[in-house]
Design a binder for these strands. Structure first.
Lengths: 162, 162
DNA sequence: TCTATTATACTCGTACACAAGTTAATTGCA
DNA sequence: TGCAATTAACTTGTGTACGAGTATAATAGA
C-alpha cells in the first residue's frame, strides 16, 4: 500500500495542509484555526449553550471546554449561568469578542476562497459531494457520539463503594 | 459562511472521520492509527533513518520522535546508531515488530477498502486528483518543511557560548 | 585548517481530539 | 412523590501536530 493510495494518509495530509494554511491566515489575529472557527460560529449566532455550540461545531465537550477556556482568558467570550437550567451555561461574545469574531469570519472566508482557487468549479462541487457522502454513510460505522446502550455488562457491584 | 461551505471545516471533519475509523480498526492490534501507518511504512522498507522516515511519512521531527518512542517502548522497533554518520540513527523492526507491521499493513488495506466503499470508482479518482492538486499547489504557500535559507538574520553571536 | 553553516535527532511548550469518568441539575416514570 | 436515568459541563490522561530551540556531528568555504 503506497501512501498515495491510502485514504487515511491523504485525508490527514489534506487536513493538515488546510489547517496550516488557515492557521497562518488567522495568526495575524493571534488566533488558532479552531478558535477562529468557533468565533465564526458565534459571530453567526451568539448566546448559545456549550452543548449547542458543540453540536454545531461537531466538537467533543472536552475539546470545546479547552477552547472556550482560552477564548475566555483572551477576553473574547464570557460564560454566564442559565437560570432556566442551572447545569448549562450561555456563551456570549464580549465587546472585543464581537469585533474579533467578525474579523475571524472575514479572514476565514478570504482564506477559503484562496485555498480553493486551484480547483475548478467542478472539482469544488465534486469534493463537496464526496465529503458529504463519506460523512453521511461512514458516520454510522463508528461515530464519536456515545453509544447509549451496549456497555460491557456491569451488573451487581456497580457503584459498590464499601 | 456556513460550515458546509468551509473547506477547512469539511477537511477537518473528513479527516477526523477517517481517523476514528482507522483507529477503531487497528485498536484490535493495540495500535493508534498513526502508529499503524508508521509500522506500515517500515513494513515496506526497514532500516531507515529517522529523517528519511519523517520525509516519507511527512511528519515533523518532533512528532516522529514521540511516535518512535512509543513504538520502541512497545517493543516494535529499535533505534541503532549509525557509524557512518554519528548524528543519525537507524530504525529497524524487532521480531515482533515485523509481525505487527505486517498485520498493520493488512488492517490498513482492509480498512481503506471498507472506508471507500460508499464512493463510486469515479468519485475515488476525483478525490484522489483533487487532493493531489491541493497538495501540489498549496504546499508552496506555506509548507511545514523548514526553509533552508531565509532565516531571520542571525550573524555574529550564533553559537557564542561564553 | 578552521570556522561558519547545515543536518540529525532531540526536548519543551501549546493546542486539539477523544475516551473515560465526575458532579450537579433535570427529567421521566413507576 | 421518589428514585433512576439522563443531561450539561467539566476534569483527567494519552496521543498527535507543530513551532521553537538545543546539542552534536558533518561539511563547505575562506
Amino acid at each position: 500500500m503506497e501512501k498515495v493510495d491510502c485514504i487515511f494518509f491523504q485525508l490527514a495530509k489534506a487536513y493538515q495542509l488546510g489547517n496550516r494554511f488557515l492557521t497562518q491566515r488567522v495568526s495575524e489575529l493571534n488566533l488558532t484555526s479552531v478558535q477562529a472557527m468557533i468565533l465564526g460560529f458565534l459571530d453567526h449566532e451568539d448566546q448559545v449553550t456549550s452543548s449547542e455550540l458543540g453540536k454545531r461545531a461537531e466538537l467533543d465537550s472536552a475539546t470545546l471546554t479547552g477552547i472556550l477556556d482560552r477564548l475566555e482568558t483572551a477576553g473574547f467570550i464570557e460564560r454566564k449561568g442559565n437560570p432556566d437550567d442551572r447545569r448549562s451555561i450561555r456563551i456570549h461574545l464580549t465587546k472585543q469578542g464581537k469585533v474579533m469574531a467578525h474579523e475571524a469570519s472575514r479572514v476565514i472566508i478570504e482564506a477559503n476562497k484562496e485555498f480553493l482557487q486551484v480547483l475548478t468549479e467542478e472539482q469544488k462541487r465534486d469534493l463537496h459531494g464526496i465529503i458529504q457522502t463519506l460523512r453521511q454513510y461512514t458516520t454510522r460505522l463508528k461515530t464519536h457520539i456515545k453509544h447509549p446502550g451496549r456497555m460491557p455488562e456491569k451488573r451487581s457491584n456497580y457503584g459498590n463503594h464499601s
